[in-house]
Amino acid sequence: MTISRGAVYWGKKLLLFLLSVLLLSVAVFCVSRWAPGDPLVSYYGDRVEKMSPEERAWAEDQLGLNDPLPVQYVRWLTGALQGDFGISYKYKMDVVEVIGSRIGNTLILGGIGFLLIFTLALLLGILCAWREDGLLDRILCKVGTVTSCIPEFWLSLVLILIFAVWLRWLPSSGAYSIGKSGDLSDRAVHLILPLTVVVINHLWYYAYMIRNRILEEVRADYVLLARAKGLGKGSVLFRHCLRNAIPSYLSIMAISLPHVLGGTYIVETVFSYPGIGTLSYESARYQDYNLLMLLCLLTGVVVILCNMAAQAINERIDPRMRSGETGEVTRR
């Protein structure tokens, strides 16, 4: 009984996931095709200007851009299902290869950034909650509000100005110096500034959240009971309050993973860091259809998966959420 129910549950989730991805691919496909702009420019570059109409027609035919939209979509889908996502018009390479050569950089930046945000926010939140309304808490709150207001591109500019132009301590762009792509310390030096921007930009939002969550918890009745039993302040905070606050923090962080990854896009462009962000920006601007499709699908899949993970965590915490809103419908 329970097994079959579980199977149905996960089956439903899987179905929903596949449906969402399919819908997403249709939407991105249509929108990118409707958007004005000439994909031939990204394939042939400036030579497009000199092409005769016949040559143009031949080139479009060659790339399969003349067929009606549904035909193009079905062709893309059948290819995609067999693992063939087409070639990038700009790089004249398999799309998977193009992305594969760049995705590592984004994962390093976004991944380290996410881990740092995750742990630092937790620590800061606990610290602030521990010293609620104390001097430290108030200072941190003020500083945090200010940092979360600074647009990330401007923060990047100011950091470049200070550390790369004035002090000349750190490099201002790229992921590694020319010819040193294997040198770890060189990469780390290039990572410092972008990473700082990513972390500073998101940190306070989550730290403040965990701070308020703990403060809510501290006011609950069981804390009074635990204190009355003679438990110390620290052990109540860590063993009881934190334990209650962590699950909701986890689900929020699951939702925020794509958010943090998306935040790296702008940072990547400012620092001309060779990652997914710069790539998707280029591909959207220059109608590099196949590349754009895969990039959108990748981000979309990550977002949908993270949302599902968050939902699963929430349902684990509070089984009432699983029934959804069926109770509300009848009440009308």
Binding site: I266, R285, L292, T299
Partner: peptide, 20 residues
């Protein structure tokens, strides 16, 4: 949710292209 899952930057570029 689907709308949320498309990166905002790309959406903006699309819309910008459509609106001219």
């Amino acid at each position: 949710e689907l709308f949320l899952s498309v990166p905002n930057l790309l959406l903006v570029v699309f819309l910008q292209a459509i609106l001219g």
